[in-house]
Amino acid sequence: MSRPDRVLIVDDNLSICQTMAMILRKKGFEAEYATDGPRALEMAKASPPDIVLLDIKLPGMDGVEVNRRLRAAAPKSRVVMITAYAVDDKIRQAIDDGAERVFYKPLDIDGLLGHLGKCPDGKHGAGRSA
């Protein structure tokens, strides 16, 4: 059995970070979180996550910029954008920069888990619930 996928949650709403981390861990993922861009990049450099849940609106450096930098810091990390806004331009930009897709808040959690469980390269499924 392969090791569980490690998910980095980046959102300035700590509640979201904590609840999502608890859910992901329940579902067999390793989860950690950051509430701003620079911290997220730092963590990604230190230990590149398999998946990054990246909020577009962040204080200071926004999600689009963080995504772009993650290309250099953790080129193998999958990035899924999350947003409370229909900020089409930024979403398009993020996807152009390599993000997989976007989920809108309040998150459709089953939908999100389903997406994360898919293996883009067919290597493995996501962490499965116990």
Partner: peptide
């Protein structure tokens, strides 16, 4: 609406996640 939507959607999202977790737990 645009102004408040983010603030409401975020807590809503957190609440939703919280409920989801409770149901899991």
């Amino acid at each position: 609406a645009g102004g408040v939507a983010h603030e409401i959607r975020n807590p809503l999202s957190a609440m939703k996640s919280a409920v989801y977790y409770l149901k899991l737990a």
